[in-house]
Amino acid sequence: MGQLAQNLTDIGYMDTLAAGFTRLHRLDPRAKLLTTALFIVAVVSFGKYEVSALLPFLLYPVYLAAQGRLPVGHLLKKVLLVSPFAVVVGIFNPFLDSGVLLRVGDFGVSGGWVSFASILLRFFLTVSAALLLLALTGMNSICEALLRLGVPKAFVVQLLFLNRYLFSLTAEAESMSRARALRSAGRGGMGFGVFIQILGHLLLKTLDRAERVYRAMLCRGFDGHIRVARFSNIGRPELLFCGAWTALFIVFRFVNLPVALGQAVTGLLK
């Protein structure tokens, strides 16, 4: 129940963040979506032992969070709390790949640890980019971008409806499970039988709601097509955003800046 309520506030909070008014918020959603997609592809395209060359990519999430005035602490917590299948699988690497790959003085680091670090870094970069995209854009604008980018309308409309009603239905699910918890006399978790009852009733309510929504649509002239009127545009800020980041990603991808920097610094020290 705690988790359900938590998720509910979480979803609401992401929505509140997306309603911000910074320049990044106002950017056409297509620009943000495409740039983030490019970012993710660039990040995962590195070899499995790459760590240093991935670091400059941190600039993108850092920029988005700072420029979009987003609460870094909250988003960081979210990234870390995500159940990381990646970490569970990645943790095997250090045990399976023990050849020394990295040497600093007499100290050797095995390939497994390096690739594990790489997995964690990739995880952080890709997940934070996705979350920031949502926090700066909001689900509805992302859907708008998808539609404009040629994603089938049936799917976009489906996403819009899902987003519209997930709040209502999660709230209903939450109050149902709270009602159960309040009457279970402290007997911890939910049994299977009760669980099925709750799901079943929730499903029936859902089906009734679908029927009412359908009637409400009919009453306002619904004929099977959802018409969407949108007014955003690609302009100079969008081109600048996409262009600048694409250029940076290309540099980050093909030039290992940290190593170059490190060599310069260690060279100076010698």
């Binding site: 409806f161 009603y165 997930l166 239905l169 699910a173 669980f195 929730l202 619904f222 099977g224």
Partner: peptide
Amino acid sequence: EADDRKVPLMGVLGAFIFAAQMINFTIP
């Protein structure tokens, strides 16, 4: 299929799945 009714039905069912996935039961 051209079933108008499905537009809201699918949408709301999606929200149902989303919400229902968050309800847990205890495996004895």
